[in-house]
């Protein structure tokens, strides 16, 4: 389904459709479940599906750029934290020594993590950085 403003807040309107990373629906995420150990921090992570639903809502209310960001985020959900931080670091000025460093990261995102939108975004950055001479050493 495509979510619209009518489905928002989704946690209120569709509590059963909202699930954590291990498939637990919102009503199952209770304090007692936490105390039993049935709910862990993994159950409190957002999913690509939830981000896609929020992207739907954002687009429906005239915020296409916000929706795009949610979709880039959906791409990153499954990317391990250290890879996310490495990619961020590489995008900072002067960290990549050449366009190739960034293209390699884009390839990693595309092939290992199915993060197509992120890969495209990093490739675009590689182009811009080359044009603007950003591959200079900073420290």
């Amino acid at each position: 389904m495509r979510f619209t403003a009518k489905d928002y807040p989704i946690a209120e309107k569709h509590p059963d459709k909202v699930k954590g990373a291990r498939g637990k629906a919102l009503p199952e995420i209770t304090l007692d479940a936490v105390l039993d150990g049935a709910v862990t921090i993994e159950d409190l992570r957002i999913t690509p599906e939830a981000l896609a639903a929020q992207a739907d809502v954002a687009r429906a209310v005239g915020r296409p750029r916000l929706a795009d960001n949610f979709l880039r985020a959906a791409d990153l959900v499954g990317v391990p934290q250290d890879v996310v931080m490495r990619a961020y670091e590489l995008l900072r000025p002067g960290r990549a020594k050449s366009k190739d460093d960034l293209l390699a990261m884009a390839a990693l995102m595309r092939t290992s993590h199915k993060a197509e939108r992120i890969a495209n975004f990093i490739e675009e950055a590689a182009d811009v950085y080359e044009q603007r001479g950003l591959f200079t050493k900073r420290y």
């Binding site: 957002i46 990153l76 950055a125 811009v128």
Partner: peptide, 22 residues
């Protein structure tokens, strides 16, 4: 921007990273 140690792309990436962590 560069002296602030970022670019529009690095910051936009960070924006997506935060959203990806909810």
């Amino acid at each position: 921007f560069v002296d602030g140690d970022d670019t529009p792309w690095s910051k936009a990436f960070l924006a997506a990273a935060y959203a990806s962590r909810g």
